[in-house]
Structure formats: C-alpha cells, structure tokens
Amino acid sequence: MGLYWSFGTVLLLLAITAPVALAFGFGGASAARSHIAPLRWFGKTYIAIVRGVPDIAFFLFFVIALDQGLEYLRHKWKCPDWDEPVRQGNDFVVCSAAKLPLGNSPQWIHESYGFALAVLTFSIVFGAFAANVLFGAMRAVPHAQLETAEACGMTRRQTFWRVLVPQMWVFALPGLSNLWMVLIKATPLLFLLGVEDIVYWSRELGGTKTPRFTDYPHADWRMWYFFFLLVFYLCFTKVSELVLDRIMARLTHGQATAGGEAQRKAAA
C-alpha cells in the first residue's frame, strides 16, 4: 500500500514545488535586476551559488540547515531565559518547547514536517535555476520594447509589470520546460531527504522476504521494482515532453520568433 501512496507523494511534491519554485525564481530574477544594490547582490548570489556546487550537496545541506535555523529561531522566541549555549560540542541543543516538531506530536506531523522541509528545499534549489532562466528571458526581451515604454512615460515599475513580464514568457518557456524535466528527474532525491518515497518503498518491498516474517515470501525482487520505476520515469518524461510541445506550439502562435514564422509558413 505504501508504494502506491508514495507515487502520490511524488506527484504532490511536483505539484507544490513547481509553482513555489517559479515564484522564488521570479523573485530572484527581479532582485537580480533591481537598482537597489544589496537586493541585486542578493539576487545575483542566489543565482550564482547553485551553479558551481553539486545539487545533492545542496539538498543534504539545506534540510539540516533549515531545520536547525527554524529550531534556533523558535528557541530564541520561546525560551529567552535559557542560559546554556545552543551548540554544545557536537550537539545541537534547544529547549524542548522549541523542538520542531514537538516531541509529543503524533507520527503524521513528523512525516508531513519532513515532507514540508523537502518541498522547501526543492523550491529553494529549483527557484535558483528558475531565476537563472527568467533572468535570461528578461534580458532577451527586445530592448526597443522597454525604450518605447519609457518614451510613453511609464515608470520603471509600470514598464516591468506591463511590458517586460508579459513578453518574457515566450523566451522563458524552453528553459522552464527543460527545468520541469529536470525536476521530474530530481524527485528520487526525496529518498535522500528521509521522506518515504517510491525509492524507499521499492527497496523495502523488493528486498528478500522470508516466510517467517511475511505471508508472501519472495526472493530479491528489488531489480524488478527499480526496473518498474525506470519505466515509470521514462513514460512520465515522454508524456510531459508531448504536453510541453503543445504548450510551446500554442505560445509561439503569432509571435515574431523563428518558431512563429515556421508555423505561419506551414499554415500558408
């Protein structure tokens, strides 16, 4: 049963992460374009920092760092009169009221807390990738458009929202669809974050079962379970490829790009 639910977990993760990461990316890209220096530095660092480092290192790092950061903030908030240091050698100690989730909360809260952390981590990392794509897309919008907007007397804010943002999506879509493919392929990393996802259940269920512990003894089937996962991902990739192609065809319709031109010629 767990295996079936875990497919739901993966799909849920995709459904939540994609819009949140897009929002993060939009924020990052706008920050990187900002005229306020600290904000611009923040945006640029956010984009730059994920580029040189392996992604799993980020996943492993952010989960612990976020967890500890949240606990530390709650610790400061809930127990102001705590006099021991938080870092005692190799241990990270906060007062029990600040533990996240609380030690006495039921199991499902623990699980969903882990899942929420994973979603946040995915969003931060993929937000940076999306920020990179959107930043490029914003620069790809023809400059004449922005100059025209300025000549019409629009403020910077108006130019950004009314001219730049509506036009950038066509330029961003190839990058974003690529990112979606990458996001699909990144979902098995949930396993590393300690969420009981499809990889976890495939390992559990596929392992050798002896008659002493279960009604359905079988040999080592993990190979077949993982083969099934492989096929699942291949099909998923293929389907999204088809869907994204259709979206792209719709979006390029009537645009002054090479794709739009090709469509016009094919119709004529």
Partner: peptide
Amino acid sequence: LFRGSPLFIQFFFAYFLFLS
C-alpha cells in the same frame, strides 16, 4: 533511455541488476 530517466534510479537498477 539514459536521458529520460533519473541517474539515481539508473544507479539503483544497475546495482541490483549486477547483484542478480
């Protein structure tokens, strides 16, 4: 096959394939 599936799953599958 190799571009459409996650490398992570490929590793797992290959390992258990090699085991058998």
